[in-house]
Structure formats: structure tokens, C-alpha cells
Nucleic acid binder design. Structure first.
Lengths: 333, 333
DNA sequence: CTGTTAGCGCGTTCAT
DNA sequence: ATGAACGCGCTAACAG
């Protein structure tokens, strides 16, 4: 592939002149511009990003770590980040962690090797300690969807306790007294928080609660089916169920349907996350909205300004999910 | 950030020695290894990918252009590519084209600037000519989801005519005689092909066809709703509808539901793409499976071997979608 | 306005 | 086994 030197030779000028026209420096004669442009076209010249990054001491890239790009939730997150990054002239380097500590570590290191100035990291596999270490190393690193007290000003997180509390409270206020919970069996903070919110709401409203009303499964459709089946088997007098996320709610709905139990008529269901599928389920799923776009934009802006040595403004960093009422909960109208 | 030179000084050796231990060269004494390792740790040394790429004349990256990462369809595609690329020690650079010619062009150029050896390109905005030009420039470039005769051996595409034909034929074989079509209004080849397949099936089976049975909308849920509403308004004796894609089918189902028309009892619906939402719709959507993972893997392998100067093996490059029977079509059992 | 030159961080001969 | 020196492609002084 042609280099700047080849172009210089072809255009009969020095490489400095070529560099000037490439970078649209004002000090370049019209004659040079034309000659160089022609030569570049003729040779099919393409500037080498690595060489530029090296001499400019800047890769013009920002890094993102997600769990899995094929998950629509992360898709939305990446898009939001890409939009604000692009607006600032940066492009994205994306790593997948698949919730494995080792993969997350390797991905972050890759981003560091590429000298990403700003980093938006979604990590569920790494320990607080390790993330804190990374954050010390990279000034422009921001943690998203997780709260670490020691680096609170670098975290953009969601209040999952409150979210789950709100969802459960909504059921209670609509007259439900026997509310089950379909819980994830992933051992991460989110799991614990969402379960806590559910329990707290029951306690605050003086409703009975019991482990018996809770069942577990993988945080996907199959897990929801499994948990719902188990719940059904116990023959509990449930009139409503709160779930860990929309996927589990989908599995739950599916099992219910197969058993001739109709939501919301026979039982009410509330999801969590407001992912793309919630609009497509039948009945359309009432769920808690996870403002991931907003949070991702915020995280990106924060990471970028941190990378630029600007200190973090102490704004909201703990977001609160909001209820999206659709049709899966029977309400007292 | 510490450079190899700093490490050399700290470890009291030359940069050549440091380079050797970094790259695990056999000719490096145990003593050096230890000293260098220690120094690297102490200084928090991180190799600079740009410098490496420059001197090695290889970025170890491969590029991908998709329409929009937040679309689950592309999410699945990216994941498949990432999986095989990672297995070969490459990482991904991802560009979003948003179906705009200019954005697609810029994204591809970015990938070229970064010296991606292999490229998997999904483009609907650029002309055949421009893509052919790019393919001449980049030996390891492969086009996915589009067929360009001049560079057929560099294309991994789907036979949309056959797919839509199969979908329509399935309806016909189940006794339907009045079959409508919900068409995309995006002016791309896919639109035309899928419509063609529908029409051809009707002709082959001697069924009447008319523009009146076809309606248009954006290839998303809203577009499906709009088109279905229009179709309903015409008061046609339809018993089945083939659609451009699952999203339009979702909108269609939604409008039907609101009008008290139940699928598959009152009307049968068949989707296209077999995206994630098809499993969640009610009734679960019968649709054509787009083997995007398979195709993406194939495209990646092809791009990678092309980049390595290995010639393309003349294998299947035109894939055929298959029918996934779920519950949205009333069958003759 | 233009050309010469140094150096960004690293891998790699080629001596030693 | 090790180090000095060169060059990858490019930008930014600096001198003219």
C-alpha cells in the first residue's frame, strides 16, 4: 500500500507538503494541493491510522466493554455510546466480556493497548478491587451499570432495589396480596438488589413473604419457564408475579399460556428492563424501564471529559427505573 | 504512560531484551525475564498497539460494517464474526452505516485506514460499482447479504426470492387462496426480491394476484401496522398474509389483535428473518429462517483466507432460508 | 510556501 | 544471550 513517501515522489514534492495537504494545513499552495491530490488518487493512497496514532499520541478511539453485543440491551447501549463518540470525532473499539472475568480482563487490556483515552465499562465478572486498579490506571474510565463506592464519581448505575420495589408496589397498589418472584440465579449484585426490592415492598406493606414464593432460573426465557413451572407446581394462591427481567417474564408468560392461565385476567406479570421484546409479548408487558440510552450517553460524556482532564461534575449518577404500564397487569380501574 | 525504553532502563537492559521477553522469544535469559517482568509490573507498562501495528505491518484487526449494531439481527451477525475472528487472534473494528451511502463509505474508509486485513461488509447504501472498487483495493473484503455478479466469489448472500416463494407456497399448500403481502418501502434489492418470490408463487399455483393485495410501509413494527390497517380498510377476502420481515409481521399482528381478528384462527401470518422477536410474538410467528450466523461465519472465514492470499474456494455462497413452523399459520392437519 | 530532520514506540537485523 | 542501530508511516518544529 502506498505511503506518504510514494505520494511525495509522485507529486514531486516533499513529504511535509503531502502531510500538509492531507491535514488541510492553510500553508499549502493551490499548486501543491492539486499535485498531491492527484498523486494520492493515482496511487490509491490511504493514511495509516497506526502511524498517525503513534506520532499524535492519540488513537482517536474510545473503548467499550459489554457483556455480549448480540444482546439487544447492549446493542442499545453501544449505539448510544457510538452516537455521542462519533459526534466528538472518536470511533469505538468494542470488547465482549461474556460475563467471564478472564475475558473481561483481556478485553479491557486490549482497549488499553490501543490507547483508548476514554473507556465505558460494563463488567460483572471482575472484582471491585480489579476495577478500581484499572480506573487508577485509566483516567477516562467509567463504570456503567454498577456502583463501586470507592470510585462513586466514576460510576453510572441504576437503583435496582428501588426499581424492583416500585414494580412490586405497583402490584400491591392494584390489590394483589399474593405476589411471587421469579429470580435470576446469576450471582451478581443486580440479582440480589432486585430481589431485595421485592421483599422490602412486601414488608413495608405488611404483606407475608416467604422463600416459597420465590423461584430461580437462568436470566433468560428458558429460566423463566423453569421457574414459573416450579412456582405453578407448588399450588400457591398467587395473583401476581414480579420478575428479574423481561426475558424471564417472557418464559413465564409462555408457560402460563400453555397451562391455560391468562394474563392479566388470571394472573398479573411485571417485567424488568423494558427491552425490545416487552412490546412484542402478549399481553404487552408492563415493566420497569431501564434508561440505558440515557445512562450510556452520560457515561460517555463523563468518560470523555475525564480523559480530557476535566474533573467530573457531581451530577446524578444513580439512575432510577420508571414503570412502563402496558397490559400484563390487572389494575383496579 | 511507560514505554519500552523506560522498562529497559528500569530493568537495566536494552530495549531489544525487553522486546524479547515481551514476545516470549526463546533467546532471553531467565535473569532478564525476571528483571524485565518486574520492571514492567512496577511501571505498569502496556505495549502500544499502534507502534506494534506499524512495525509489524499488521493491525491484527478485521473490520465489519453493519447497518446498526442495536438491531438484534446485526447483533447476531457481529457476534458470529467476533467468535471466529477471536479464534484466529484478530479483534474487531465495527462500523455502523445506518444505510446511508455517505456513512457507509466513511466507515469502510476508517476500516481501511486502520489496515484491517479482512473486511466483512453489509452495505445497502453504496452502489455496486463503488463496492467493486473497494473490493479491488482490499483483497480480503467480502460482501455479506448482497450479491454482486462481478465479484460473485466475494459475496455471501441469501436467496430472498426463493425464501419468499417458500413462505407463500407454504400458505398456498395449506389451502389459502387469498394471500396478501406486506411489503417494505425501502428501495433496496431485498424488497424487490421478496416481493417477487411472493408473486411468483401465486403465479405458479395459478392463483390471482393483484397490486391491491399488497401494501407498503417502513420495514418495522409501525410500518407493519400501517400496511395492515390499509389492507384491512380495503375489505379484501384475505385468509393469509406474507410479510417482508418479522417486525412488520409484529405490527400486523398487533393491528389484527386490536380489531378482534385472531391469528391463526381468522387469518394466517408468516414472517421473514426469524429474528429474536418471532419467538415472543403471540401467536409465535411462523417465519423464514435467515441463517445469518452461518453466513457470517462463512464470510469471516472467506475474508480471512482471502486476506492471507489464499484463493476463495468455490463453495456455496448463495444461502437458502428455511421455514420455521410456529403457530401463526392455520394448517391443514 | 517548502523541504529537512527528529522522533513517536516498537521489532529486528547484525554484530559482539 | 545481548545491545546498537535502523526503519515502519507520519507530524511538527525549524530553517530557508
Amino acid at each position: 500500500m502506498a505511503t506518504i513517501k510514494d505520494v511525495a515522489k509522485e507529486a514531486q514534492v516533499s513529504i511535509a507538503t503531502v502531510s500538509r495537504v492531507i491535514n488541510k494545513s492553510p500553508k499549502a499552495s493551490q499548486t501543491s494541493i492539486e499535485a498531491v491530490t492527484l498523486a494520492m488518487k493515482k496511487l490509491g493512497y490511504r493514511p495509516n491510522a497506526a502511524a498517525r496514532a503513534l506520532v499524535n499520541q492519540s488513537s482517536q478511539a474510545m473503548g467499550v466493554l459489554v457483556g455480549d453485543v448480540s444482546d439487544p440491551f447492549f446493542g442499545a447501549m453501544v449505539k448510544a455510546i457510538d452516537t455521542v463518540a462519533t459526534a466528538q470525532g472518536k470511533h469505538l473499539l468494542i470488547g465482549n466480556g461474556f460475563h467471564s472475568a478472564q475475558k473481561e480482563r483481556e478485553a479491557i487490556e486490549l482497549l488499553i493497548h490501543h490507547r483508548c483515552e476514554a473507556l465505558v465499562i460494563h463488567s460483572k465478572g471482575l472484582s471491585n478491587e480489579e476495577l478500581i486498579e484499572f480506573s487508577k490506571e485509566i483516567q477516562g474510565m467509567v463504570i456503567i451499570n454498577r456502583f463501586i463506592p470507592e470510585i462513586a464519581e466514576r460510576c453510572i448505575a441504576l437503583d435496582n432495589i428501588k426499581g424492583s420495589y416500585t414494580a412490586t408496589e405497583f402490584l400491591i397498589k392494584n390489590g394483589h396480596k399474593h405476589i411471587g418472584y421469579i429470580c435470576s440465579n446469576h450471582d451478581i449484585e443486580d440479582t440480589e438488589h432486585r430481589k431485595q426490592g421485592y421483599l422490602q415492598a412486601l414488608k413495608d406493606y405488611g404483606l407475608p413473604y416467604s422463600e416459597n414464593y420465590i423461584d430461580y432460573g437462568l436470566p433468560n426465557e428458558a429460566g423463566g419457564e423453569e421457574a414459573m413451572t416450579n412456582l405453578l407446581t407448588k399450588g400457591l394462591p398467587l395473583t401476581a408475579i414480579a420478575t428479574y427481567n423481561d426475558y424471564m417474564a417472557a418464559g413465564c408468560l409462555s408457560v402460563l399460556d400453555e397451562n391455560g392461565i391468562h394474563a392479566p385476567h388470571d394472573i398479573s406479570i411485571v417485567g424488568y428492563d423494558n427491552t425490545i421484546i416487552s412490546r412484542y409479548l402478549h399481553p404487552k408487558l408492563t415493566t420497569m424501564h431501564y434508561p440505558i440510552q440515557l445512562m450510556a450517553e452520560k457515561a460517555t460524556l463523563l468518560a470523555l471529559s475525564l480523559a480530557n482532564n476535566q474533573l467530573a461534575k457531581a451530577e446524578t449518577s444513580m439512575y432510577v427505573p420508571t414503570l412502563v404500564k402496558r397490559l400484563s397487569v390487572k389494575t383496579l380501574d
